[in-house]
Design a protein around this nucleic acid. Structure first.
Lengths: 337, 337
DNA sequence: CAAATTCTTGCATACGTATTCAAACTGTGC
DNA sequence: GCACAGTTTGAATACGTATGCAAGAATTTG
C-alpha cells in the first residue's frame, strides 16, 4: 500500500479556488466567504484532506506540541497527571510529546525537545538540569515544573502547599497522642521532600515535639522498605511514621505488617502524601494528604497558555491547598473538641 | 525574552561553508569530509544549533513521531507499557505523541494523528474504530494493536497468549480442588476478554468442569465490585474467581474481604491477569498470569520499525507466552506429583 | 449614482531542511 | 602530464502551508 498524501493544492484544484483559500478555510478567523469555505470543506472531505500540522508548524512557528518530561511512571500520581494534562491540552488543540528520562541524559533530551520546536515544557518527575534552565531562558519557551520548584531558575512551578501539608500531618499525629514520631524522606534534593519535611518539623515544634527518628527512602519502593527496617531495627520502635509519598507508604506498610508483624494503626500509625487511587484500596486505606491534581493541572495549563499566547516567559508559582484525607492507617485524634 | 532561532544557514555562514554542508554534517551517512564536518560541528556548538526536526520532517516525510493512543491510565499495566515503549523508541530516535481518548471521539483523534504525519500508531487501550482501520489502510501508516486484536482489520497486533493464560488458570484452580469456579469478565467486546474466557472454559472442560457463575466487570474498579456482590449475593458462594485482569481483581478482593468478611484464599481463591506491580504488594499478593510486557514491547517496536523501514504495511500478529505467577490469593494445588 | 469602505481572493513568498545535479577537487596509474 | 574514477562541494529546488500585498468584488455611504 502506498502513501497517498493529499495537500491543500489538491483540494484547491478540486474546489476550483486558490491554495490560499484552502488554507484560510481551515483557519478559524480568516477572511473567507461562507460559500468558498463550504466549497473547500466539501472538496476536502471528499479527498480526505487534513492540514499538515508539520507544514503549519514550519511557517507559523507553532507546533502545538507540549513536551512532558517524566522520569518514572511507577508512582501512580504521574500517570494520572499525564492523563488529565493530555486531555486538557487536547481540548485546546495542543498535544503531548512524551519524554522519559533519568537525570543522566537529560541534556540530550532537552536538545531533542528543542528540535521538535515544542511550545512549552512540563517537567513532571525529574529535577531541572542547569542546561535546561539556561536553554529555556534563552529560547523563550515556557517551562512549568510540576510538583517541584527551583527558586533560582526562570521556570514557573506548580505545587501543592507541601509545607502546610506536612504541618497538617504533624498536628494530626500529635493529636493522636503519638510520642515517637518518625519521618521517611523522599529524595533529599527534591523540593517536595524539603517542604514536606520542613512543614512537618514545624508542626511538631508547635506542639513542642521533635522528630523521633528519620530515614531516607528516595521515593522508591525498595528504598522505603529499607528505611522502614532501619527505623524499626531496635527494640523500641516509632509509634507513627510520616512517609513522604504514598508510593513509599505502601511499601512501608507491607514491611511493618509482614516482616515486623505489627498492626496498623494499633501498633503504629502511617500517613502518606499524594492520595493516589491505591490509597483508598481496601488493602491499605491509607490516611494521606491529597494533592489537588485537577487544580494543579488547571494552573499548569493556564500558565502555559498565557505565556504561549503573549510570547513571553515570566516566572510564576502556583501553590495549591492540600487537604488531609483521613482513612484507617493512622490512629484517630483523641476526642479533643 | 525573545526567541532566537538559529538555523543551518547561520551555522553555514559562521563555518564558511554552504547550507548543504551543514545539513550533511548532521546526517549519519552523507558525503562530507572529516574536516568540513568538524568545522561545522564546532560552529554549531558555538551557536547552540540543533537541526529543526519539523523542517526535516517536511522535506523527508519522516516525522519520527509514533502516536500512542490510550483510553485510561488507571490500570497500571498501561503506564508501565508507555514508559517502556517510550524509552525504546527514544533510543531509536523516535518519540511518542500521546493521545488520550474515549471511544467516542476517536475519529477526531485519528484525524489529529494524521495531521501530525506520525510514522506509526500504537493503540494500547482503546478498541479500533472502523474509521481508523480504513484510514490507516489508505495512508500506509503501520498500526499496532497492543494487547488486543481485530482479525478483520489490516492492523498488526501484539498480545500475550490469552487463551493459554486462561487455560493455565483453569487448570490451577481445578488442581486446587475448587468446585464452584466463577469468572468475572472484562469488557465483553474486547479480544482479551474473549480469549481469556475461552481459554478458561476450555481448561475447565478438559477437567470436565464448567463455569459455576459469571458476571461482567467491564475492566473497571466499580464494575468489578458490583460483579463480585452479584456473584456472592446468595448463600452459596463460589469458592474461586478468575478475574479478567489484576485491576479488577484488587477490587474483588476488597469487596470479598471487607464486605463479605471472607478470607482469601481459605474461603475463596482469586486469580487475576497482567501481573502489574501492585499484584506483588503485601496487601494483595495476587496469584496472576504475567503478561510479558518487555517481550510485547520488543515485538511492537520491531513490527513498527520494519514496516516504517520498508515503507509498506502488512498484517503481523505476535502472540507471546504467558506465565502463571503463584502468590497467595489462590489455594495451592493438592500435592499431585 | 459615484465615491468610499469593507470583504474576498489569488499571487508570490517564506519557513528550515534534505537532496539532486553538475562542477570542482583529489588522487591514481600510465 | 593526462585520462580516469572517486570524493567533496555548492547552487538550486522541493516539501506543504500561512500570510502580506495588491487587485477585484461587494457593500455601504453621501
Amino acid at each position: 500500500m502506498k502513501r497517498a498524501k493529499v495537500t491543500s493544492g489538491d483540494v484547491a484544484r478540486l474546489a476550483d479556488v486558490s491554495q490560499s483559500a484552502v488554507s484560510r478555510s481551515f483557519s478559524e478567523d480568516a477572511s473567507v466567504s461562507a460559500v468558498t469555505r463550504a466549497k473547500v470543506l466539501k472538496a476536502a472531505r471528499k479527498l480526505g484532506y487534513r492540514p499538515n500540522v508539520i507544514a503549519r508548524a514550519m511557517i507559523s512557528g507553532r507546533s502545538r506540541l507540549i513536551a512532558v518530561l517524566v522520569a518514572y511512571l511507577d508512582n501512580q500520581f504521574y500517570p494520572i497527571v499525564i492523563e488529565q494534562l493530555s486531555r486538557a491540552l487536547q481540548e485546546r488543540g495542543f498535544h503531548v510529546l512524551l519524554f522519559i528520562t533519568d537525570t543522566g541524559n537529560q541534556d540530550v533530551v532537552v536538545q531533542q525537545m528543542m528540535g521538535y520546536q515544542v511550545e512549552g515544557i512540563v517537567m513532571a518527575s525529574a529535577s531541572l538540569s542547569s542546561t535546561l534552565a539556561r536553554e529555556c531562558a534563552q529560547t523563550g519557551i515556557p517551562v512549568v515544573l510540576f510538583n517541584r520548584y527551583a527558586p533560582s531558575s526562570p521556570a514557573s512551578s506548580v505545587t501543592s502547599d507541601n509545607i502546610e501539608g506536612g504541618r497538617l500531618v504533624a498536628r494530626y499525629l500529635v493529636d493522636g497522642g503519638h510520642k515517637r514520631i518518625a519521618y521517611i524522606a523522599g529524595s533529599e534534593d527534591s523540593s517536595t521532600n524539603r517542604d514536606r519535611e520542613a512543614g512537618f518539623y514545624r508542626g511538631l515544634a508547635e506542639s513542642s515535639q521533635i522528630v523521633w527518628a528519620r530515614a531516607v527512602g528516595n521515593y522508591s519502593f525498595e528504598g522505603a522498605a529499607d528505611a522502614t527496617r532501619q527505623l524499626c531495627s531496635s527494640k523500641i520502635k516509632p509509634d507513627a511514621i510520616f512517609v513522604a509519598n504514598d508510593h513509599m507508604a505502601f511499601s512501608v506498610m507491607d514491611v511493618l505488617r509482614i516482616e515486623m508483624k505489627l498492626h496498623i494503626p494499633n501498633d503504629i500509625s502511617i500517613i502518606g502524601y499524594d492520595d493516589v487511587p491505591e490509597a483508598d484500596w481496601g488493602g491499605y486505606k491509607l490516611t494521606t494528604v491529597r494533592q489537588p491534581s485537577e487544580a494543579m493541572i488547571d494552573a499548569t495549563i493556564s500558565i502555559l497558555m498565557e505565556q504561549i499566547q503573549q510570547e513571553t516567559v515570566s516566572r510564576r508559582a502556583a501553590i495549591l491547598p492540600a487537604e488531609l484525607i483521613v482513612r484507617q492507617s493512622a490512629r484517630l485524634p483523641k476526642n479533643k473538641s
